[in-house]
Design a binder for these strands. Structure first.
Lengths: 343, 343
DNA sequence: TTGAAAGCGCTAACAG
DNA sequence: CTGTTAGCGCTTTCAA
């Protein structure tokens, strides 16, 4: 094993002190050009790379960002059968890398274990994707490092946040359907948790109904879990519930994709028999047949913003809550059709 | 900012020396039960968490594993519109976490920059997914740390490897089609690079043709890039090339999914008019209509194996090349139909 | 403008 | 069995 090149070696070769080398590396102080050049050339020649562990030890800065992704179950593997996460990570990793940070991706249980990980690794900040038990958040506050919450309605002032206006999203999706002539609109959704993303979208749905004087019908709400199979299975129940239903608002694309397939299997034509609108605009939305009309949010940009915001908070030591709301819009593809009452 | 609890604090509280605490933490030496318990209880009470930067500094072990994912382009973001990577990461992250490691995911350019990252972070090992320029691999050898290559046919003895038998996969896919009565079988594939995964699958395709005395036809080879859009666009060309083509072997599911959609748009029925078989069995394979018949590899398990193998090599300091070949099999779904010659 | 030196928190060799 | 101690590589005061 070759000995590692350290700052000492550089100093010796460049005939300066260790401190000087350190100054050059971190361009501190105002050194004369010559010194800087001399040191830099030695660094290059020796292929010197600073040891971040050492740096982290003294400065307690690690250039490491924790990224917490929901798991299928506690202690289990990451929820990567939802393309939403992949796209988010792609944006996050890219942005982090551009700024000299690295991302440690991890699932996390609600216990204190993740807090430990952060301490252990001296993480500079954390991005948390999705909703978790209150306890998880309150634990993490103890870390005392900047935390950006993505898609969480946790109100705690401690956390910064990246969001979209989910309620507005639910509203425009439903309104879009209504304006296409639909009156009997089912809502297919994950668990409607108090203060969760899903609840907001649901409330938006109700807002739109109200605005157009369409009575709310509890029977039209299909509440399950956010995954393909739930969407797949629920189609039958929707049909059984009422023949009047002509449109469905699914609060996640993955649900909508399941629905499309389930409904088609039952002999329904999309959008001729039933119109469907989704939410998120994950890329797989283009893979299904017919391609899904949906509420688009820029997921890659979300990952990007989360990291940028976090880095900003870390560098400027911002303590005041920072909030960013990203825009959303309807993307028209082929799953919604104008409904004409045939009676 | 609260002062961090260090090993010193624990030592003081437990009325032992820091060395003893260190021994307890790493369960070195054989200490009397009492001491162990005393120290542990203080650790718990004080909420002590060891600082990995410090540990890493002295032991040059970081419990960090680098995971390199292909990028869409050099310097660009990760190729996450291919679900293959997501599933792989899920398996890798889970396994790493279970073993006390963390994963740093990163895209990487072919230059030396990734090597620097490894040095900087004292990475214990690297898992590299996919094929890269020879130069990239040779650079990384310099790191002198264990490296597991996944899906690469780089022959260098330095690297450990996780693979499937791609040639065999190409063979069984094609054979499956042939046994279903197809004789005019197109191959849709990414760039056929010497010693790449794709070339092997292509060779397997030829093996099968040969075995059944079906002449190879260069016109039936459609070589492009591995993505949905290429599959989508190539359907038309296939039809134009020959009306005799009744089946297609796509060397990646993502291509097959594009094909299905492209072909359907052209009025072709799958599998009535054209049969399609894919490769990988990514989960989105079930989302398309009709669900894709494909060569299944367990991608999650691949991620798992890669990490396990790497950790084994790290811990036991194995220098001899370790190789694992994971099994594959055909999964029959609905895109291949028995072909009956109607003449 | 530069250097000496004191740690950051931890491990491990060595001593007792 | 346990404690003392010398670093690991780096940053950063303080002094020159």
């Amino acid at each position: 094993m070759k000995k590692r090149i350290t700052i000492k070696d550089v100093a010796r070769e460049a005939e300066v002190s260790i401190a000087t080398v350190s100054y050059v590396i971190n361009n501190k102080e105002s050194l004369p050009k010559e010194t800087i050049e001399k040191v830099n050339s030695v660094i290059k020649r020796l292929n010197y790379v600073p040891n971040l562990s050492a740096r982290s030890l003294v400065s307690s800065k690690s250039n490491l960002i924790g990224l917490v992704i929901p798991q299928t179950e506690s202690g289990n593997h990451l929820m990567f059968n939802n393309p939403f996460y992949s796209e988010f990570i792609s944006g996050a990793e890219y942005t982090a890398r551009l700024n000299g940070y690295h991302i440690i991706i991890s699932g996390a249980d609600a216990d204190e274990s993740y807090l430990e990980v952060c301490k252990k690794r001296n993480m500079d900040g954390i991005v948390i994707l999705g909703a978790y038990p209150e306890e998880f958040f309150s634990n993490l506050k103890k870390s005392n490092i900047p935390i950006v919450l993505v898609d969480s309605y946790c109100e705690d002032y401690y956390f910064h946040s990246i969001q979209i206006n989910d309620r507005y999203g639910g509203y425009i999706a439903t309104k879009y359907l209504i304006e296409k002539g639909h009156k009997h609109i089912a809502l297919v959704t994950g668990k409607i948790k108090k203060e969760g993303v899903t609840e907001k979208r649901y409330l938006g749905y109700r807002d739109a109904l109200k605005e157009f004087n369409i009575p709310f019908n509890q029977e039209y709400i299909f509440e399950g879990i956010v995954d393909y199979d739930y969407g797949l299975g629920i189609g039958g129940k929707i049909i059984d519930t009422s023949e009047e239903i002509t449109a469905i608002f699914a609060t996640a694309d993955i649900l909508a994709m399941g629905l499309i397939r389930g409904l088609k299997a039952l002999g329904k034509k999309i959008p001729e028999d039933i119109s469907i609108i989704g939410f998120d605009d994950v890329y797989t939305t283009k893979l299904v047949d017919p391609p899904l009309t949906t509420v688009k949010q820029n997921i890659f940009a979300k990952g990007e913003s989360a990291i940028k915001l976090l880095i900003k908070c870390v560098n400027k030591n911002l303590k005041s809550k920072q909030e960013i709301i990203l825009p959303i819009e309807i993307v028209e593809r082929e799953t919604v059709k104008l409904y004409k009452d045939e009676k």
